[in-house]
Computed example of a mutant assay.
Amino acid sequence: MNQKQRRVWLIRALLEEMPQYQYPVFPYTPDRQWRLLRSLMNVRPPMPVTEKFLQVQDAFLREMAEEKGIVEAESLPPCAKDSRLVLWQGDITALRCDAIVNAASSRLLGCFQPCHDCIDNIIHTMSGVQLRLACHELMQDREEPAGRAEITPGFNLPARYVLHTVAPVIEGDITAEAEALLASCCRSCLELAENNDLHSIAFCSLSDGSRFPQDRAAEITFRTAAAFLQKETCIRRVIFTVPKGSSLAVWQDLLA
Results as ranks from 00 to 15, higher is better:
1 M>S: 14
3 Q>T: 14
10 L>I: 10
12 R>I: 05
14 L>D: 12
16 E>F: 10
16 E>A: 15
17 E>C: 14
18 M>N: 14
20 Q>L: 14
21 Y>N: 08
21 Y>S: 03
23 Y>T: 15
25 V>K: 13
25 V>Y: 12
26 F>N: 06
29 T>S: 15
31 D>G: 09
32 R>T: 09
36 L>I: 12
37 L>A: 08
39 S>Q: 13
45 P>N: 15
47 M>D: 14
51 E>C: 00
51 E>L: 10
52 K>L: 12
55 Q>V: 07
56 V>Y: 15
57 Q>L: 12
59 A>E: 11
59 A>I: 01
62 R>H: 06
63 E>G: 11
68 K>T: 06
68 K>S: 04
69 G>Q: 02
69 G>L: 00
70 I>K: 03
70 I>N: 06
71 V>I: 11
72 E>C: 02
72 E>F: 02
73 A>H: 11
76 L>P: 04
77 P>C: 07
80 A>F: 11
81 K>A: 13
82 D>P: 00
87 L>A: 13
87 L>W: 07
87 L>T: 08
88 W>N: 03
88 W>P: 00
89 Q>M: 11
90 G>S: 08
91 D>I: 05
93 T>R: 03
96 R>Y: 02
100 I>C: 01
101 V>I: 10
104 A>R: 01
105 S>V: 06
106 S>G: 01
107 R>N: 15
108 L>K: 03
108 L>S: 02
110 G>E: 03
112 F>H: 14
113 Q>K: 13
115 C>Y: 11
118 C>D: 11
120 D>Q: 04
122 I>D: 12
124 H>A: 04
131 L>K: 03
132 R>H: 08
136 H>Y: 14
139 M>T: 08
140 Q>C: 03
140 Q>E: 14
143 E>T: 05
146 A>F: 01
147 G>D: 04
148 R>A: 10
149 A>Y: 01
150 E>I: 03
154 G>H: 03
154 G>F: 06
154 G>N: 07
155 F>R: 12
159 A>S: 15
160 R>A: 11
162 V>E: 09
163 L>P: 00
165 T>W: 05
166 V>I: 05
167 A>M: 05
169 V>R: 10
171 E>D: 08
173 D>H: 04
174 I>D: 04
177 E>D: 12
178 A>N: 10
184 S>Q: 10
186 C>R: 00
188 S>E: 04
189 C>H: 04
191 E>M: 02
194 E>H: 09
195 N>L: 07
195 N>V: 02
196 N>I: 03
197 D>C: 06
200 S>A: 06
201 I>K: 02
203 F>P: 05
203 F>T: 06
203 F>W: 09
205 S>Y: 11
206 L>R: 09
206 L>D: 07
207 S>R: 04
207 S>N: 08
210 S>R: 02
228 F>H: 01
229 L>D: 05
231 K>C: 02
236 R>E: 13
236 R>G: 13
237 R>C: 00
237 R>A: 00
237 R>N: 01
238 V>T: 09
239 I>N: 05
241 T>Q: 04
242 V>H: 12
243 P>G: 11
243 P>I: 14
244 K>D: 15
244 K>W: 10
245 G>Q: 11
247 S>G: 13
249 A>G: 06
250 V>R: 14
256 A>C: 09
